[in-house]
Design a protein around this nucleic acid. Structure first.
Length: 328
DNA sequence: CGTTTTTGACCGGCGC
DNA sequence: GCGCCGGTCAAAAACG
């Protein structure tokens, strides 16, 4: 199971100030089945701190996007310099208030059932479970995110081919420190399920992209370790672009290069890059589907989101900050 | 009235 | 084989 979480990288959080003192930053961790081989060996004791300690220089957001030719484009879009080892993602104000930590798990296209993810679930859950580490709230929610399984298209797969093993879709998880569960990411989602999470008082919600034929799903759950953290796991790749109809139009924030078809609709594994397109919700903060104006946001140009580097995650995450409570 | 959410049932995988 | 578990289905309800 440990390997499930290997290849975690820490990234600079970005901050998105909103709502007065509010801000929302995040760090990004990516992993891939093989591209990266650093072994973080996160255990139940893993903490953000540990993550931060990952030996290899943590990847930067843009680095994660590597493998694509859009690096620079993207970096540019985000107003980042891809040389920095730790890139600030964004922020409008200072005050690191909220943080998002991400974990990536790319299991795309592997025919081999390599690691039985499912088995991980229960065990890892338990591992993390039970404790009440009130102080140690940096347990490692990522684990929670990754714990569950892979079995993406179960029935669908079945109908198509029964013997065939549900093939794993690229997955990408990240944590967001927010009181809002469902973060706006520019896409439209339909909830199709909700399940109680073992050892957690918070349920996990399952969403599917509403665009026809789009296979992307996402799960959202709140870390019981640190209820202020929301764990979002994306699975699959959008076969379309961000709908330009949402409030505020997230797509409008993206540079043409980011939206260019070449970006993701055609070739190969573009897992991180593709999924990152969904990240803009970090900036575009607000409650998904929220009707509250409180969360309405003025979009901030990426250029203004440049951030200075921040210290260790554990120095950031604990920072207190609260969005007004609100459910979608 | 079309779309989304809710929620219990159902399913397949897995461990015992 | 059985029960647990995560994930999904789908009918009904809620929503706009």
């Amino acid at each position: 199971m440990a390997e499930e979480y290997r290849d975690l990288y820490c990234h600079q959080p970005f901050y998105n100030d909103r709502y007065g003192s509010g801000s929302n930053g995040f760090t990004f961790s990516g992993s891939s089945s093989s591209a990266y081989t650093q072994d973080a060996s996160l255990t139940a004791n893993s903490s953000f701190h540990n993550l931060q300690m990952l030996d290899p220089p943590y990847m930067t957001f843009t680095e994660i996007l590597q493998g694509s030719n859009d690096n620079n484009a993207l970096a540019g879009a985000f107003g980042l310099s891809r040389t920095s080892s730790s890139e600030a993602f964004s922020r409008v104000k200072d005050e690191p208030k909220s943080v998002v930590v991400g974990a990536g798990d790319y299991v795309g296209g592997s025919e081999t059932p390599a690691t039985p993810n499912s088995s991980i679930s229960s065990s890892s859950t338990e591992a993390v479970g039970n404790e009440d580490s009130s102080k140690n709230q940096k347990e490692n929610p990522m684990k929670e995110a990754m714990e569950d399984g892979e079995d993406a298209s179960k029935k669908e797969t079945i109908t198509k081919k029964k013997g065939e093993k549900k093939q794993k879709q690229p997955r990408f998880a990240f944590m967001t420190k927010s009181e809002v569960d469902h973060l706006e990411d520019g896409y439209r989602w339909r909830k199709y399920g909700q399940k109680a999470v073992k050892n957690s008082p918070y349920p996990r919600s399952y969403y599917r992209c509403t665009t026809q034929k789009c296979p992307v799903k996402k799960r959202i759950e709140r870390s019981y370790q640190d209820p202020s953290i929301v764990i979002t796991t994306y699975e699959g790749q959008h076969n379309h672009h961000v709908p330009a109809t949402l409030r505020g139009n997230v797509a409008g924030m993206l540079s043409p290069s980011m939206l260019a078809p070449s970006l993701s609709l055609q070739d190969g594994p573009m897992f991180p890059r593709e999924l990152l397109l969904q990240i803009p919700h970090m900036y575009n903060y607000g409650a998904a589907g929220s009707t509250s104006n409180v969360y309405q946001q003025n979009f901030t140009p990426f250029e203004q989101l440049q951030l200075p580097d921040y210290g260790l995650l554990h120095d950031i995450i604990p920072s207190a900050f609260h969005f007004p409570k609100q459910e979608n």
